[in-house]
Design a protein around this nucleic acid. Structure first.
Lengths: 344, 344
DNA sequence: GTGAAAGCGCTAACAG
DNA sequence: CTGTTAGCGCTTTCAC
């Protein structure tokens, strides 16, 4: 706890005129001022004007704490990201997600609270969920065990997942059909005549990574094919590079690679280039996500399009609807498409 | 999938046991519970234990709103970034800044509020400053006019700038000596025997960009040299590419480039490569910031090191000290160094 | 429509 | 050291 000794002119939040002051100046009751300020309709125009004018001359600003204490609402929704900040700001997916949420929130008048917690720091997340800091919560990039069922059960506000939570979690979500995405990638590789296919998968404690792998493997096995290699990265560029190095070292012969994220695909591509492997002639590469640099002319990565921004926006809308008590379909799943470019 | 029906079970923040409940169960007064919860030292161990146990069995969590209403403190500090989100998450400098602030805040127990406002949206920023949402404010990437003197004067909490604010603003700040940084870059280029030097500067409504330009120009002019070209980007990769294209188009002969940010340097480098210009033989390039990819082996950009993370951390510490009423030197300015790599 | 009154849950003097 | 006593500023029934 910080011992805050009030520094002269800076007296924390407790500044300025209060509702009471406005009421006095406007010659009405506090209740009326409150109604006007919040936009309650049931007020005579005269009084509305009086209040508005008083608010202006006094420079009145509502006190948030008082407001939420009385109303039991915070006016904010939180985006919880159980991920190290180095990754959050490094992976374009999060950028899309944050920007999508921002967009989705535009509708309502909720403030966005960005909560970065490391996957390890579950206590903090848990405390947050129970602390009543927000009226609703969005969770993105969920790892197995980050938010267990019991933690969720404790939550005092609605929680919406961006990206499906692990098995049977009692929470609504928006997601991409990652299994189908995996299938699309595999099918494309097969159509290109590739048969010796290597897989660099994502972290298997994340549903999206599992689903992508499952999709690819199913599609391949239905064609009677088994991947010649399978390893696991953590969705980062570095891990893609590392796993490709390992694959190259292994001397296993392969003519195609499916990487579970564009970043890993890019890392792998980098390694391949250094080794003088020709893409797509020697090795075809398919990524997943369609981050901005994937479309870059000098890269032109074939990839499964993950509309992260859209997804996040839908998630935010879902949450807002839930908060407003609006009826609507709960979870929803988008169908991915393949962007064919020059690495295949 | 459970139908998270209505708002019924989710009554916002106002759930659960209160201080009062804990007091009753523990058999003490509310004040005592409050003391224990906040870690006030003046309490008998017996009671402390009783309270702790009651807290646990009840699952008590303090109500934030009530707490800040009573204490006039929010327990949060805000990082205001008057920048479009697309840039925030795209420019490594912000990543460093955010991560630095996070680190600096670790000391106190303040929550970080990330406030992204577009430079245009000053009303929002202003409202925020007056709304008492945070106990203190950090501002990074300030543009001329974002926070005018009068807006600042209205602020009800201490404000610390990361990066010096424009002329004579009445606020403490932490900054890098950008003028000196500019000088270092110019001096280095001169030492390398370059004389036909081109400049791609940053946005001149940002003090850092102005200072860098001033530093370079001063150093050059003291050597009796005038830049052969001078244009302005917005610190982004795209703008570096664009300005280099313009320079190349102009047919002006140059043997060196100083770019006011690494991102712009990288953009320029890209363009130079496409045009088959040899770096550093034909053209030497110096950037500014030392972002991670600058040190990358395939790039190895010579650049002025901008310890953004450190700076932000110091800024956060400064703010914390201010809030705690701790005496300390106000603003501080770090001295930059040059990282010589292979583009010069 | 509008005002009066009763808290929301907590902190912070102030006695004791 | 601990309990009592006042509010913090606002929303929200509930009568009028």
């Amino acid at each position: 706890m910080d011992m805050l000794e009030e520094t002269g002119s800076h007296r924390g939040a407790g500044r300025g005129p209060t509702l009471e002051d406005v009421a006095r100046v406007a010659g009405v009751s506090r209740a009326t001022v409150s109604r006007v300020v919040r936009g309650d309709v049931q007020v005579h125009q005269d009084k509305v004007d009086a209040v508005r004018s008083a608010v202006r001359t006094l420079g009145y600003v509502p006190n948030n704490a008082a407001r939420s204490l009385a109303s039991k609402q915070t006016g904010a929704v939180a985006l919880i990201v159980p991920e190290h900040e180095s990754r959050v700001f490094t992976d374009p997916f999060f950028v899309s997600a944050i920007s999508g949420v921002t967009a989705g929130l535009d509708t309502g008048d909720k403030q966005l609270l960005l909560v970065l917690t490391t996957p390890e720091d579950r206590a903090r997340t848990r405390r947050f969920l129970r602390g009543g800091h927000a009226d609703g919560v969005l969770v993105v990039s969920h790892h197995e065990g980050d938010l267990t069922e019991e933690v969720l059960a404790e939550a005092t506000v609605p929680v919406v997942f961006i990206g499906r939570p692990p098995q049977g979690y009692p929470a609504p979500f928006v997601d991409l059909d990652n299994v189908h995405g995996g299938r699309l990638a595999a099918r494309h590789l097969l159509q290109r005549g590739r048969r010796r296919i290597a897989l660099i998968c994502g972290p298997q404690d994340m549903p999206a990574a599992v689903d992508r792998r499952l999709g690819v493997e199913k599609e391949l096995s239905e064609a009677g094919i088994t991947p010649v290699w399978r390893s696991f990265g953590d969705f980062t560029l570095a891990s893609g590079e590392r796993e490709m190095a390992a694959l190259l070292d292994s001397d296993i012969s392969f003519d195609a690679l499916f990487a579970s994220s564009d970043l890993m695909a890019l890392g792998a591509l980098k390694k391949l280039e250094v080794q003088g492997v020709n893409v797509p002639d020697d090795v075809a590469v398919v990524g997943f996500d369609d981050i901005a640099s994937a479309a870059d002319a000098t890269i032109a990565l074939t990839t499964v399009v993950n509309p992260g921004r859209r997804l996040a926006e839908l998630g935010a809308t879902l949450l807002l609807d839930l908060l407003a008590g609006r009826e609507r379909d709960q979870s929803l799943v988008l169908c991915p498409e393949l962007a064919v470019r020059s690495t295949t």
